[in-house]
């Protein structure tokens, strides 16, 4: 794809031999950005599974031990509740561990979890560098920057999403707002925030990993214990991003999903206004 540098001069390049009709496509995602995007899945999964096992060793959130169960950890309470109320789980061997057995490597595995967490954290940082390099080389970072019209346009998008179910019910057309940009303002704020959250996860991770040698970094996040809270909730921000992200990609269709694998999209018409 060496001709990309030419495209500033020629809005339409041609790779069609002879007079055969070609398919009009637009570049969407630079190669390194696509790689780092998909690599995030196994890496973040490893970080979360091992991270929750590390959390188990000393939960951030605790309450007074319950007189009945002896539990002081809300995650253990949830496990106890699930095993008490879900049919088929009444015989579960260790109800307080139910949640940890399902969203982590398991309880009582701190050493194994730490080693896996360091490995995945190293890979996550390297992958972050791949993303930065890809964004710089492909110029995609410009599409992520917030801009002045974002607030107004985000409102239009909100109104659109609110109206979608109603328009489906009443079978009336409800048009997607048009923007002359790669992403709509809600996408943009999400795609801008997620790398920031990733960066903050790395920084809070270092603040927790080296609270003495990097004590200035730990101090930025309000000290060791607060840095743990930050690190914990940054995980939830990443998880809570993924859920609507996957739903909306599937709703948007094959072209959007494919473009993150192959890099191009046939939806060239969105940018006609350029």
């Amino acid at each position: 794809m060496s001709h990309s540098t030419q495209l500033d001069h020629e809005p339409i390049a041609t790779l069609t031999p002879g007079n055969q009709a070609g398919v009009r496509v637009v570049r969407r995602h630079y190669m390194l950005v696509r790689y780092s995007h998909w690599l995030n899945i196994p890496i973040l999964l490893g970080l979360i599974l091992s991270g929750v096992s590390i959390y188990w060793a000393s939960p951030v959130y605790k309450h007074k031990p319950s007189p009945e169960t002896g539990s002081f950890d809300p995650f253990a309470d949830i496990g106890i509740w699930i095993c008490a109320h879900v049919p088929g789980l009444h015989q579960y061997s260790s109800p307080p561990d139910w949640v940890y057995n399902h969203i982590s490597l398991g309880p009582g595995m701190l050493a194994a979890a730490l080693r896996l967490h360091w490995l995945c954290a190293d890979l996550f940082m390297l992958n972050g560098l791949v993303f930065v390099a890809g964004s710089a080389m492909g110029g995609g970072w410009r599409s992520l920057l917030p801009r002045r019209t974002d607030l107004r346009d985000a409102f239009k998008m909100f109104r659109y999403y609110l109206g979608v179910p109603l328009s489906k019910l009443t079978r009336r057309s409800w048009l997607h707002p048009r923007f002359n940009t790669k992403y709509n303002p809600l996408q943009r704020v999400a795609y801008f925030s997620v790398p920031v959250a990733g960066l903050l996860s790395v920084l809070t991770g270092w603040a927790l990993h080296k609270p003495m040698q990097l004590h200035w970094l730990t101090a930025i996040f309000g000290g060791y214990d607060k840095a743990r809270v930050w690190h914990f909730w940054l995980m939830w921000i990443l998880i809570l991003f993924v859920v609507p992200h996957v739903i909306l990609v599937l709703a948007d269709g094959w072209d959007t999903l494919r473009s993150m694998i192959v890099g191009w999209s046939t939806r060239a018409e969105r940018w006609e206004d350029f």
Binding site: D8, I12, A13, T14, T16, P17, G22, R24, A268, W271
Partner: peptide
């Protein structure tokens, strides 16, 4: 933001 890079590619 730069305009998209459109191109025509043989099927």
């Amino acid at each position: 933001e730069r305009p998209p890079q459109a191109m025509e590619v043989a099927p």
